[in-house]
């Protein structure tokens, strides 16, 4: 592998000149974006430097327990973000999201680190944490979309669901179509990106690897593994989430518990 070219802090600052340029244009055109841009840029720098420091220390001294704690925080934050996006929610959604994300992302990453890349130990932080970040980022979008659609169908098309129940359908028979539809919704972004990857978009990770000096074929192989991982985790995560949500929103005696769903905001 070629040694990645290190960027000096001085060089990093020169990239900021581009932002000043953008800010200057905004100021001239009175778009009022410069404050937001400055804030966003500052946050980017602070957050990433912080992450860099944390990752640095984790990679050096990461024990199993420490890695677990970091993963728990990552999954917790992802669950929170995932359930906040849909326009409706229900009690217990966070726990369901947490469980679905944890089970599927760990399963997928374990398979990849153990079987595909064969890292020892499988939780080696240098692999585990970036992979988890990537998988969670994508699963989160998937389960958000899936949950949003499921809750919307149950609320907006409640009459249809309850009509099926009233005509002798079990809860699962009445919910099967909404669940399937929501799972499809959840998968749209990842399927789309798998369809056009390399043609329209070069994934950020691959671009980063190539820029950092890795040879393209190596980057491609990693990228394929990553795409499979992301797709598998998103699909399984969404399905798990939907099944658990179903069990929470329908009673065992086949009633739709519409009262558990609440609307956000408004």
């Amino acid at each position: 592998m070629n040694e990645a070219m290190d960027i000096s802090y001085w060089q990093l600052c020169s990239a900021a000149v581009l932002l000043f340029l953008a800010g200057g244009i905004s100021f001239l055109l009175k778009l009022g974006l410069e404050k937001k841009l400055a804030l966003a840029a500052t946050r980017t720098v602070c957050q990433l430097l912080l992450v860099g420091l944390v990752l640095d220390s984790v990679f050096r001294h990461g024990t199993f327990a420490f890695v677990c704690a970091i993963l728990a925080v990552m999954i917790g934050v992802a669950s929170h973000a995932a359930i906040k996006r849909p326009s409706r929610g229900f009690e217990g959604a966070w726990l369901i999201a947490f469980f679905s994300l944890a089970v599927t992302s760990l399963l997928v990453i374990w398979t990849v680190t153990r079987v595909v890349i064969q890292v020892d130990p499988w939780w080696t932080p240098r692999y585990m944490i970036p992979l988890m970040g990537m998988v969670l980022g994508n699963s989160l979008t998937g389960i958000s979309l899936g949950m949003d659609h499921f809750l919307e169908v149950l609320s907006v098309r409640r009459a249809e669901v309850e009509t099926e129940l009233a005509l002798g359908a079990t809860a699962w028979e009445a919910a099967r179509e909404p669940v399937a539809e929501s799972a499809r919704r959840a998968m749209i972004p990842i399927i789309n990106s798998m369809m056009v990857v390399g043609l329209v978009s070069l994934p950020g990770m691959m671009t980063g690897q190539v820029l950092a000096g890795s040879d393209p074929m190596k980057a491609v192989k990693y990228q394929i593994v990553v795409m499979f991982m992301i797709a598998a985790a998103a699909a399984m995560g969404a399905m798990l989430l939907l099944v658990f949500s179903f069990r929470r929103l329908f009673s065992k005696d086949h009633r739709l518990l519409i009262g558990k769903i609440y609307k956000r905001g408004s």
Partner: peptide
């Protein structure tokens, strides 16, 4: 009771038709 019937079986015998028809 409905639970002894199994609610889905019970609802086949005691059928509710809502005021606004919900067509699939």
């Amino acid at each position: 009771s409905p639970l002894e019937w199994g609610v889905n079986n019970y609802r086949r015998k005691v059928v509710y038709v809502s005021q606004r028809a919900a067509m699939m």
